[in-house]
Design a protein around this nucleic acid. Structure first.
Length: 423
RNA sequence: GUGGGAGUAGCUCAGCUGGUGGUAGCACCUGGUUGUGGCCCAGGAGGUCGUGGGUUCAAGUCCCAUCUCUCACCCCA
């Protein structure tokens, strides 16, 4: 095959569009119920923005970014950095102390594609900026859970706290001390991580490492008083809202900016991919990016992953439909049909027509294929008496309708008849 | 970056130990009905067998290389 999309980039074809529209419509609606306002952001930013927010030593920044070296710009690998950049640039906090924002769009990471993972993928992203209260954390998770529920998807919620700059460093030291004791029993990756990113060892899937990590110091036991209070309040909030969750003291995030609350929505039905959504608090990040000292929290849902899960649940694919298909026989009828179709469309009628002069049988077949509710058959006989055959495609009922008057009037006549038909 | 699997019609796939590419299913076109869709029947069109090289009288089939897709590792939504 000569012409094809590049690796990890995929077309979303008309037959799968209904899932994407449903994801967008449901989530947009729920975001708005929770007071979030939409923001649209460029898909490129200055490279340094991502290095400063996501973290210089993360995999994303080290090896997964699409960067135009000569332009100093990078295709965004995630949305939070861009959103905060826009927030700071336009000083949105001066308009309203707490900003609730969401955005929907493509992200780019140069990874090896696999099931549920692409180089261009799409996220729904929601952020609350300027609120430090734990009730915001629980509300945000409840919102994510509501989106998943309304999409008909089952997912579990796992939460953890990563502490703050006051308590995390000492936990890190404890963890490193512990890991060094068992260094020889860890997998090679984890031996390396002990120094580079010890928290990651907690997340290793190898059974040996898992056993060792089971007895490792718990971050939840090492939180400072403020972080512990915050975390307990988040849990209490989830319980009040009836959102079920489990604690996962081994959960670690791939981005450096997280503090305190982190969470993931997980599924078992996506092969190697477990997370369909994830997020957390990032108090301190906005200031670090040169903005005001405001706390923030947000999460993202992976749209491809949602769509895959929805496809698994789907019994039959929903097809598009049209209201009316005009089957025109002969050149004169085709010309009349075109004008009629135009006026019907301006009245809001989804109208199909083909100008190829094909047989009536072929045109009727096309009417069936596009799932037209009605077919309007126009031939020379009908034209001579200013009429047409209107066929109800759900059965075989057919009636002659008058096309008296000019084209707009004929269109109104047909519109009236077909709008009064039972669905 | 590292492994496994797979590339044959628009899609899903048969094709054995090499011997002329499948009446395969779905989809498409035409006809069965002078101008009537779905179901059915008949016919038709559609392929450089991913690409390049090699072995052989003969390669979709065996060998080598390469490209692509896919799943997984890593990591992540």
């Amino acid at each position: 095959m000569k012409t094809q999309a590049i690796q990890g980039f995929k077309d979303i074809l008309p037959d799968e569009m209904h899932r994407w529209l449903r994801i967008e419509n449901v989530s947009r609606d729920i975001f708005q119920r929770f007071g979030f306002r939409e923001i649209r952001l460029p898909i490129m930013e200055e490279t340094s923005l991502f290095a400063r927010s996501i973290g210089q030593d993360t995999d994303i920044v080290e090896k997964e970014m699409y960067t135009f070296a000569d332009k100093g710009a990078t295709l965004r690998p995630e949305a939070t950095a861009s959103l905060l950049r826009a927030f700071i640039e336009h000083a949105l906090h001066l308009k309203q102390p707490v900003q609730r924002l969401f955005t929907i769009g493509p992200m780019f990471r140069h990874e090896r594609p696999q099931k549920g993972r692409l180089r261009q993928f799409h996220q729904l992203d929601a952020e609350v900026i300027g609120a430090k209260e734990p009730d915001v954390d629980s509300e945000l998770m409840a919102m994510g859970a509501m989106i998943l529920t309304e999409l008909g998807l089952a997912a579990s919620l796992e939460i953890n706290s990563l502490g703050c700059p006051r308590c995390r460093p000492s936990f890190r030291e404890q963890l490193i001390d512990y890991l060094r004791q068992y260094s020889k029993d860890l997998c090679p990756d984890c031996r390396r991580r002990t120094d580079t990113n010890p928290l990651r060892v907690l997340d290793c899937k190898k059974s040996n490492c898992r056993e060792l990590v089971d007895d490792a110091p718990s971050i939840l036991a090492s939180l400072c008083a403020a972080c512990e209070d915050h975390f307990n309040a988040v849990c209490a909030g989830l319980e009040r809202l009836g959102v079920s969750y489990t604690l996962n003291r081994f959960m670690v995030r791939g981005l450096d900016y997280y503090t305190r609350t982190t969470f993931e929505f997980l599924t078992d039905n996506l092969g190697a991919q477990a997370a369909i959504g994830a997020g957390g608090r990032y108090d301190g990040l906005i200031e670090q990016l040169g903005g005001p000292a405001l706390p923030g929290i947000g999460f993202a849902l992976g749209m491809e992953r949602l769509a895959l899960l929805m496809e698994q649940n789907e019994e039959e694919k929903a097809a598009d439909s049209m209201d009316l298909y005009i089957a025109a026989l002969g050149e004169r009828a085709i010309r009349e049909g075109q004008v009629l179709a135009h006026h019907l469309r301006s009245l809001g009628v989804r109208t199909g027509i083909d100008y190829g002069g094909r047989s009536l049988k072929a045109q009727m077949k096309q009417a069936g294929r596009v799932r037209a509710r009605f077919a309007l058959i126009i031939g020379d006989d009908e034209l001579d008496r200013k009429a047409a055959q209107l066929r109800d495609m759900t059965g075989k009922d057919q009636q002659e309708v008058s096309l008296a008057g000019d084209a707009p009037q004929a269109a109104r006549t047909i519109h009236t008849i077909i709008s009064s038909a039972p669905a």
